[in-house]
């Protein structure tokens, strides 16, 4: 059985979810729980780091769709980062770049959140 795991890091107002392994129909509930926990804690600024994700299926993509509305309703966002070409290709094929900001690195995504925060505070 292909393994999948997530871990979460708090970085100030932003939370980073690290994905590892194979995200498919079988493992999608794990990521679902991770998102649910963050949302329960009212953490809505979320960066997902795909560096160690080997594979994603459409059921895995569905998890992102399932939470994005709720997150954005609360003035947050899910920003994606550090995807391999293979993983990006699947996101791209299904048109996700229209909906999600995808960054080369985790830091760029975090910076984007900080800039928005700064603008709001001005």
């Amino acid at each position: 059985m292909a393994e999948f795991s997530t871990s979460v890091k708090d970085a100030g107002d932003v939370n980073i979810i690290y994905l590892k392994g194979y995200l498919d129909a079988h493992t999608a509930p794990t990521l679902e729980n991770t998102f649910s926990n963050l949302i329960d804690r009212e953490r809505y600024s979320i960066v997902v780091n795909f560096k160690d994700l080997a594979y994603i299926s459409s059921a895995g993509l569905g998890v992102f769709m399932a939470f994005i509305e709720k997150v954005r309703e609360n003035k947050g966002d899910i920003k994606l980062s550090a995807m391999s070409d293979k993983v990006f290709n699947i996101f791209d094929l299904l048109g996700f770049p229209l909906l999600y900001e995808i960054f080369k690195t985790e830091d760029e995504a975090i910076t984007k959140f900080k800039e928005i925060k700064k603008l709001e505070n001005q």
Partner: peptide, 28 residues
């Protein structure tokens, strides 16, 4: 992938959830 997953004896709610995830991921 889904046919594999659905073949297992999953709970009904989980089957429905996987169905939904696949469709909403595929079609935004």
């Amino acid at each position: 992938e889904l046919s594999k997953e659905f073949g297992l004896f999953s709970e009904s709610t989980r089957i429905a959830k996987l169905l939904v995830y696949s469709v909403i991921g595929q079609f935004l």
